[in-house]
Design a protein around this nucleic acid. Structure first.
Ligand SMILES: [Zn+2]
Ligand SMILES: [Zn+2]
Ligand SMILES: [Zn+2]
Ligand SMILES: [Zn+2]
Lengths: 152, 152
DNA sequence: TCTACAGTCTACAGTAACTATAGAGGCAAG
DNA sequence: CTTGCCTCTATAGTTACTGTAGACTGTAGA
């Protein structure tokens, strides 16, 4: 029946081949069957599961949360309290970050509009970066806001 | 003159001791003088520099950008075009993330409010995660939105 | 059938910006 | 002089992947 190689699965879900293997290595995906020569072979269940993972990741759920969600799916008779709790936690996280980013946006905008060009010595952007005391905030509510800029 | 140990510098700037040593290792901070027994000794310039770095990091500037900004500070007679360009790039980044997060917020909220409790089998949160097709968006504009949840 | 060439395999290193740990040595107060 | 905190170096762990090397496999055209 419908058994696809890792490349097909990748094409079907939009998840890179290496990422699929990575998910398997961290036990997010079950080990698939193998062909005689050792190539991975997937069925419809894998497409479903991988789609689920991808959507959750797109929404910012950490892998640990996705692992929880998957384990909850295993027995469908359970109450979905925990599922909803995880989702609400994630929503809270997203909102926390939104608040932080809004503060950053405001400060960056202020910095940039204050600069009217000229020499580095008198650049208000550099001045503002050097003197946190003049900011409108005590601290940048929360820190470590942009975990790391993708930069790619 | 005012020479402080790494611990004092840490206290003065709010940057952890280990992080200060890390910044030195990646050449964001100059190597400081050392006491006879090898302990780092810092002066006022280090406090200033580290404060600058911290503020820029708080605003989400990647280390690579901070490195650029520092190198620009070195000759103050230059035009500040580049400084402003870096800041605007950062502002753009922040805005891009804001947009993404707003989309995520909306989808998570929708998911959660659709769930009215019950069993896992019928939980709308899990259903929504499983079926990306029913979303209001083609893709989650941009992906890799929350580089990694701090989770700490 | 031979030969490209794309796809797959494993294993390991690199990314960003730190944080944590181990194990050794330093410094001031009591 | 001992207690207890500070500092030192070096190394590994974090998160969620991505990229590489080097070898093998599967397939389609000449
Ligand atoms: Zn300027
Ligand atoms: Zn500020
Ligand atoms: Zn539910
Ligand atoms: Zn979606």
């Amino acid at each position: 029946m419908g058994s696809m190689t890792i490349g097909k699965l990748s094409g079907a879900t939009g998840v890179k081949v290496t990422t699929i293997r990575y998910y398997e290595s961290i036990d997010l995906l079950d080990e698939p069957e193998r062909s005689a020569s050792g190539q991975r072979l997937y069925g419809a269940a894998a497409v479903e599961r991988l789609g689920f993972i991808r959507h959750a990741r797109d929404l910012g759920f950490p892998v640990s949360a996705i692992r929880e969600l998957i384990s909850l799916q295993v027995d469908p008779g359970r109450d979905c309290d925990l599922v909803d709790q995880i989702a609400r936690r994630q929503l809270g996280e997203v909102r926390r970050r939104l608040t932080q980013l809004e503060a950053l946006e405001a400060e960056l905008k202020r910095m940039i509009t204050a600069c009217e060009g000229g020499k580095v010595a008198s650049c208000s952007v550099l001045a503002a970066l050097g003197h946190h005391e003049h900011c409108l905030h005590e601290e940048h509510a929360g820190k470590e806001v942009l975990a790391a800029l993708p930069s790619k």
